[in-house]
Design a protein around this nucleic acid. Structure first.
Length: 428
RNA sequence: GGAAGCGUGGCCGAGUGGUUUAAGGCAGCGGUCUUGAAAACCGCCGAAGGUGUGAGCCUUCCGUGAGUUCGAAUCUCACCGCUUCCGCCA
């Protein structure tokens, strides 16, 4: 959520910065709504003040044993008038609030301008794609004989669900274990296990709601409906970030660093026909996520650090990748600045997203009321960051493709072998 | 599923219809003292918002939401959460 003070004081600049990401801010609508709010609020508060002082007079008069009927008559009509004023104000205020929740974050000034993903800027590359002396298969053809079972997944749950069996399932688990161990042992993140079902309030906090409800899975309890709508998490960013909602942290406990391995559930409503083959785009996939709750002065350093933590995983797995700075037009709704990591997929002969690391600035913190007490005693919003470290399913895809052998076997990356009973390959 | 109790500022905690303008304590901040620190003592100190150049003034907030009342932390109803006991259960 943007700072409404900024909209009041500098709306043209805000509109210009949002235009860079392809969002048209309704300046006129805001100005008139805001003017209405201001007069209604002033009116309401005047009436409240009048009621308070009159009521106090009544209290004092009664205590002194005086006759209060004159004052009572004076205040008789106030109630209805006040109720009407409060209702009018509440209506306008909630329209304003609801509208504010739909406005995306401002891109940071260091974010390159661009309309869509073609405007993204490559920051660096690591590794050299392997030269194959046989015809490269994609992960579906490599994995299917080894335990990648799309038919059974579809039978159980429909398209975009998959069953993993045997050594593929173990490799998938090994990847998650390796990532989690690396982030906790080497990068200082605190391991976290969080709920997979969350209340809707939580999704307002991180920005999935109100705009992106169609991307989520909503769940129902048996029998009666839950008091508050509940959803399956689409990433553990949601739960880890919201752990600090409605709290005031001490400045010296920042940064907080959390990591979790969790399933992620996405309806992929807008992705019909895209990536229908294989594991790339699933309704359910696992991800190891990193979240940092940072001091505003240090959030950009934390972003660079976090990208590095994701890169460590790819380097340890010896998977070639590149780092891309997303342009203004390609960033997510709540992001202030985002780097994507793209891993080399030989069968597609291209780099594909495997991690996204973002500094959200105070955008989520303002929605969550997540604050810290600064050294001078003032409450300020924290900055929140999140990054995949990494998407486990897509990492499995990358390993299957990059480590495939001519005989149909797949070499196990050296760092994963301790998790695989010491074996150096599967299949073949 | 049944029964009872509880929910107050960063934390603890008093407060059962009218100067509550939420006591007191802890933590925090500033100061005195000290070579320095601790202790002691003194002072400041909840949050969100509105309005004003500003000192300030005003409003709201005691789990959430409705209601009763001129007036609600306090009374009523519903919901949420926590605790304890009983039952059931991986």
């Amino acid at each position: 959520m943007l700072d409404i003070q900024l909209l009041r004081s500098n709306i043209d600049e805000v509109a210009a910065r949002l235009a860079a990401r392809g969002y048209t801010l309704e300046v006129g609508a805001f100005n008139s709504l805001e003017a209405e709010r201001k007069s209604l609020q002033t009116r309401m508060q005047e009436l409240q003040s009048q009621r308070n002082s009159t009521s106090k007079q009544i209290g004092i008069a009664k205590k002194n044993g005086e006759d209060v009927s004159a004052i009572m008559a004076q205040v008789a009509s106030l109630g209805d008038e006040l109720k009407a004023a409060e209702d009018a104000f509440t209506t306008v205020q909630s329209r304003l609030d609801n509208w504010l929740l739909t406005i995306p974050n401002l891109p940071h000034e260091s974010v390159p301008a661009g309309a869509d993903e073609s405007g993204n800027v490559e920051a660096r590359r690591w590794g050299t794609p392997r030269a194959f002396d046989f015809e490269v298969k994609d992960h579906v053809d490599v994995g299917s004989p080894l335990g990648l079972d799309f038919e059974t997944g579809a039978k159980l749950s429909g398209a975009r669900f998959t069953v993993l069996r045997g050594q593929i399932a173990q490799l998938h688990r090994a990847l998650a274990q390796f990532m989690l161990n690396t982030h906790t042992d080497k990068h200082g993140y605190s391991e976290t296990y969080t709920p997979y079902i969350v209340n809707s309030d939580v999704l307002y906090g991180t920005g999935q709601l109100p705009k992106f409800a169609e991307d989520m899975f909503r769940v129902e309890r048996g029998g009666e409906a839950a008091a508050q709508a509940q959803y399956l998490i689409s990433t553990s960013e949601i739960t880890m970030t919201n752990m600090v909602r409605e709290s005031v942290l001490k400045h010296d406990e920042l940064p907080l660093k959390f990591t979790a391995h969790s399933p992620c559930f996405r309806s992929e409503a807008g992705a019909y026909g895209r990536d229908t083959r294989g594991l790339i785009r699933q309704h359910q996939f696992d991800k190891v996520e990193m979240v940092q709750i940072a001091h505003p002065d240090h959030s950009f350093a934390a972003l660079e650090e976090m990208v590095g933590h994701a890169e460590v995983i790819l380097q340890a797995l010896e998977l070639p990748y590149r780092v891309v700075t997303l342009c203004t037009g390609d960033m997510g709704f709540g992001s202030h600045k985002t780097y994507d990591l793209e891993v080399w997929l030989p069968a597609q002969n291209t780099y594909r997203e495997i991690s996204s690391c973002s500094n959200m600035g105070d955008f989520q913190a303002r929605r969550m009321m997540a604050r810290f007490k600064d050294a001078d005693g003032k409450n300020r919003y924290v900055h929140t960051l999140n990054g995949s470290g990494l998407a486990v399913g897509r990492t499995l895809v990358a390993v299957l493709e990059n480590y495939q052998n001519a005989d149909g076997s797949v070499t196990i990356p050296a760092v994963l072998r301790p998790y695989m009973g010491g074996r150096d390959k599967i299949g073949g």
